[in-house]
Design a protein around this nucleic acid. Structure first.
Length: 267
DNA sequence: ATGGTCGTTAGACGA
């Protein structure tokens, strides 16, 4: 079984690309982030015409997550328990469309779009950290309740856990940029301490291996990217991983997302 | 030339 995650940066703008990619890659499950649409604008036919069931969670032009599967799509959950809300500048807090879960052929898939902290002192940063903490609480409980549970936490984590996960750590430090700060990295590592593991890195060792390249400043041709999209697997699922790769080719050409798809093959 | 882009959408805002 082949499972994948991809921040498509608008599903409607990327519909042809996504369809071509699904056919080419022969993926069984795709966790999608940043659909950037409501249900009424969602391209349902794209998936149905290609033999996939799909569940979507999105209610505005922001965020939006989905799971497409051709091996079953059961027990769909939108948001995780105690998922933090966010109210900018004291506005009424809203539950953002950043997490959707479904069981696909025995594997509990979560498609996750972790909040962007924006800046170290921005009000989005504590939101990001608390969002991750609550997700980790859930994830730890899921494997405590069932040590054999096969769980894949897939998505855009907006964190570069290692210095080699950005093209120049000194640039990030000098500019005091997000994604590499100590609290963000600690929030990520808490998942590893809870028993989850990054099942892609062992098959795609760095340095210089990334999943995202900013559209600006010619980051892609200059090979200046970031590794911020991850699949963290529960112990039982990690045992099944036979191979994994980052589809860097998909970042090329006109009309590409700024993120590459990340694929995990299960035995 | 120390910048260089895209998406949502219709003037900004988000990444």
């Amino acid at each position: 079984m082949k499972i994948a995650t991809w921040n498509v940066n608008s599903l409607r703008a990327r519909a042809d690309r996504v369809e071509d990619w699904l056919r080419r890659t022969d993926a069984d499950v795709l966790a999608i982030q940043e659909t950037k649409c409501k249900d009424e604008n969602f391209p349902w036919e794209l998936f149905e015409n290609n033999g996939y069931e799909v569940a979507h969670f999105g209610f505005s032009q922001w965020n939006g997550v989905a799971i497409a599967s051709r091996v079953g799509l059961d027990d769909v959950e939108r948001t995780f328990s105690e998922q933090p809300t966010f109210g900018k500048g004291g506005k009424d807090p809203v539950q953002e469309a950043r997490a959707i879960g479904a069981t696909c052929n025995g594997v509990r898939i979560w498609s996750l779009y972790v909040p962007n902290g924006r800046a170290l002192e921005d009000e989005h940063m504590p939101y990001k950290l608390e969002w991750l903490r609550q997700l980790k609480e859930n994830a730890a409980r899921w494997i405590a309740d069932d040590p054999q549970a096969q769980i894949a936490l897939m998505g855009d984590w907006n964190i570069a856990p290692l210095d080699e996960d950005v093209w120049d750590i000194d640039y990030f430090r000098e500019k005091e940029l997000t994604h590499v700060s100590r609290p963000e990295r600690a929030a990520f590592e808490a998942f590893l301490e809870a028993g989850f593991s990054d099942v892609v890195r062992p098959h795609t060792p760095g340095p210089g291996v990334y999943t995202y390249w900013d559209y600006t400043k010619l980051r892609f041709p200059k090979k200046e990217g970031m590794r911020i999209d991850f699949t963290l697997a529960s112990p039982a699922l990690a045992q099944r991983v036979g191979d994994a790769w980052i589809d860097r080719e998909e970042r090329k050409g006109k009309g590409a997302s700024d993120h590459a798809p990340v694929v995990v093959e299960l035995d």
